[in-house]
Design a protein around this nucleic acid. Structure first.
Lengths: 110, 110
DNA sequence: AAAACATTTCGTAGTTTTGCGAAATACAAA
DNA sequence: TTTGTATTTCGCAAAACTACGAAATGTTTT
């Protein structure tokens, strides 16, 4: 009677990162903060996105919790930026996953 | 009074793909089907993953719905494989998103 | 036709996500 | 200290997700 293996930490990590990206509003936020002008406030974003202020706030909170962004207080505003260190970690994990099939020469995406 | 922009199709696409990857079981399935031995059946997977048969079936269904895998009937079994075409599309979309910041030389991940 | 096998669908339950407006918080300016 | 601005937290409701076991489906073997 062999026990069922658990999920690996990596599988759980990848799933968590993917969950953070699994809503269009959060994709938008990350795209915007990754752009050239980089950081901005919730107030600057709200006009460009079809959701209420409080909802945007929740999405920012989630991304912050996931570690992908950080909020630097600049009274009377809060300036949000990508958390570069964690972003790079997440990016590497996800890219590694997307290239799971690298060793198989028959299935490269052209 | 300018209307709020909607989310772009691309943002919605990326979010959908990310959602498909947002559970460890689905990460596991995709890793496995992307491996060298490629395709396999639900029955072959069930021993290596800590969930019930019916739950695994649901996750397979979701991945099929997302277009990332396909199930080829080989009585009395169903052989699941990566849907290469859609996988490549998804991979490109996600990689494009992860490299949104490519034009900014200051923020490359090392 | 009956038994066995692989897998899915159904029914149900608990948890999480998403969304909004109203109220609360925090700070700056008047 | 009152007013105004920026943002979050709260309270709630609807929808979606995750999970399981039991029952159903479809196919082969006996």
């Amino acid at each position: 009677m062999t026990a069922k293996p658990k999920f690996t930490e990596q599988q759980k990590q990848i799933a968590l990162i993917a969950k953070a990206l699994s809503h269009p509003a959060r994709v938008y936020i990350l795209e915007r903060l990754n752009g050239l002008n980089a950081c901005c406030t919730s107030g600057e974003m709200i006009g460009d996105i079809p959701i209420a202020r409080s909802t945007l706030s929740q999405h920012l909170k989630e991304l912050k919790f996931a570690g992908l962004i950080q909020g630097d207080i600049e009274p009377p505003q809060i300036k949000y930026c990508i958390n570069r260190k964690n972003w790079c970690i997440a990016k590497k994990l996800l890219e590694g996953f997307l290239n799971t099939n690298d060793s198989n020469p028959q299935v490269q995406c052209k």
